[in-house]
C-alpha cells in the first residue's frame, strides 16, 4: 500500500466514523438514548481537558465541571439577557473560561500532584457554592440575571438545530473539531515540549522550553473546552441547575478518564460514555438507583486496578492483535502500551 495514503487513512476513517455517528445515532436510538448520548458527547469535551492535563503533563485538575458550570452560566446570562446567538455565546463561554483556566494555572505552576488536585477541588467547591448562591440566569435583572419569582426564561436552541437530532449533530461537530485541534497540538512542537516537561521540568527548562507558558496554555485549553461543554449543555436543556456541576462529578470524571485512558481520544470518549451512558443503561435494566451507584463505585475501583494504561490501550492492543491475525502477519503481539500516568514518574 502507498505509504502516504496509509498514513492518512486512519484520519479519513475517523472522519467517516464521526459522520456515521451523526447520521446513525439519531436514527437508531430513541429519544432517551439520543439525549443521553448528546450529553456523552458534551462530556467528552471536559474529559478531553482532563486527559490533556493528566496524560500530557501529569497534572490533576478537578475543576472540569466547575468550568462547565461557569460556561453554562455565561451562555444563559448573555443568551437570555441579551439574546446573543449561539455562536457568540459559545465564543464568550470559551474565552471567559479560558481566562479563568489560565488563572487556575498559577497554583499549578507552584503545586504538584496531590496538592494541585486538592486545590482544584477547593476551587470546584467554591464555584458550586457560588452557583448555588447566585442561581443560573433565568430572566431576572441585575448582574446575576436571576429572579426568585416570575416567569422562567430559557435559552432557545439555535434555529438550525432545534430538533434533538440536529442538536446532537451540532454537539458532535464541536467535539470533532476540538478533538482534531487537540490532536494537532499534541503532535506539534507544543505537544513535544509538554511531554518533555512531564518527564522532567528541569530538563525541559534547560532545553529552552517555556514551561510556564506551556502550562498556562494547557490549563486554558482544558478550561475552554469545559466552557464550551457548559454552553452546549445550556443550549441542550435551556435551563441549568448547580447539581449538574458538583465537585464530586469532577472527581468522578477524573477517575473515569484514568480508566478510559488519559492519552487517547478513545479514552476520553469511553470516560464520557461511562459517565452518562453506563448509569442510563443500568437504569434501563431496571437496576435500583442506589444499587447502580454501588455497581458504579465498584467498577471504578476494579477498572483502576485492572487497566493501568486505561481501557483505550487495551482496546488498541486487542485491535492490533486482531489486525495482525487478519493480515496473517507473523509478528510479535502488540508491545505493552506505555503507562499513561506513569509517564511523568
Amino acid at each position: 500500500m502507498n505509504r502516504a495514503l496509509a498514513a492518512h487513512w486512519p484520519t479519513a476513517l475517523r472522519l467517516l466514523g464521526i459522520v456515521a455517528l451523526g447520521v446513525l445515532v439519531p436514527n437508531q436510538f430513541g429519544a432517551g438514548w439520543l439525549s443521553t448520548l448528546t450529553t456523552c458527547v458534551v462530556v467528552s469535551l471536559p474529559a478531553a481537558g482532563v486527559g490533556l492535563l493528566y496524560g500530557e503533563l501529569g497534572l490533576t485538575s478537578l475543576t472540569q465541571f466547575a468550568f462547565a458550570g461557569l460556561g453554562g452560566w455565561i451562555a444563559l446570562r448573555l443568551g437570555i439577557g441579551f439574546g446573543w446567538p449561539m455562536p457568540l455565546l459559545i465564543l464568550a463561554a470559551v474565552v471567559v473560561t479560558a481566562v479563568f483556566g489560565a488563572i487556575l494555572s498559577i497554583p499549578a505552576l507552584r503545586l504538584r500532584d496531590l496538592y494541585l488536585a486538592l486545590v482544584t477541588l477547593m476551587v470546584a467547591a467554591s464555584v458550586n457554592i457560588a452557583l448555588n448562591a447566585a442561581g443560573f440566569p433565568n430572566g431576572g435583572g441585575g448582574f446575576l440575571g436571576y429572579q426568585k419569582v416570575g416567569k422562567l426564561s430559557r435559552l432557545p436552541r439555535p434555529s438550525f438545530a432545534t430538533s434533538d437530532a440536529a442538536y446532537f449533530r451540532l454537539v458532535l461537530a464541536h467535539a470533532a473539531v476540538v478533538f482534531l485541534l487537540f490532536g494537532l497540538v499534541k503532535r506539534s512542537a507544543v505537544g513535544r515540549a509538554w511531554a518533555l516537561t512531564a518527564q522532567s521540568e528541569g530538563a525541559a527548562r534547560s532545553a529552552g522550553v517555556k514551561v510556564t507558558q506551556l502550562k498556562v496554555l494547557a490549563f486554558a485549553m482544558a478550561a475552554a473546552v469545559s466552557g464550551l461543554a457548559g454552553a452546549l449543555i445550556a443550549g441542550q436543556l435551556g435551563q441549568l441547575a448547580p447539581s449538574t456541576f458538583q465537585p464530586a462529578n469532577s472527581i468522578l470524571l477524573f477517575a473515569l478518564v484514568v480508566i478510559g485512558g488519559a492519552r487517547s481520544p478513545l479514552g476520553w470518549c469511553l470516560a464520557a460514555l461511562l459517565y452518562r451512558a453506563a448509569p442510563y443503561l443500568l437504569d434501563q435494566w431496571g437496576v435500583d438507583g442506589n444499587i447502580a451507584t454501588m455497581i458504579f463505585g465498584a467498577a471504578v475501583i476494579f477498572n483502576l486496578l485492572s487497566a493501568p494504561g486505561g481501557m483505550a490501550e487495551q482496546f488498541k492492543g486487542a485491535g492490533r492483535k486482531l489486525i495482525g491475525l487478519v493480515a496473517g502477519m507473523r509478528r510479535p503481539s502488540a508491545p505493552v502500551a506505555p503507562d499513561a500516568e506513569g509517564l511523568p514518574a
Binding site: 471504578v300 475501583i301 486496578l305
Partner: peptide, 8 residues
C-alpha cells in the same frame, strides 16, 4: 480517585 469509588 479510587477511594471515590469506595465513597460511591
Amino acid at each position: 480517585a479510587a477511594t471515590l469509588g469506595v465513597a460511591l
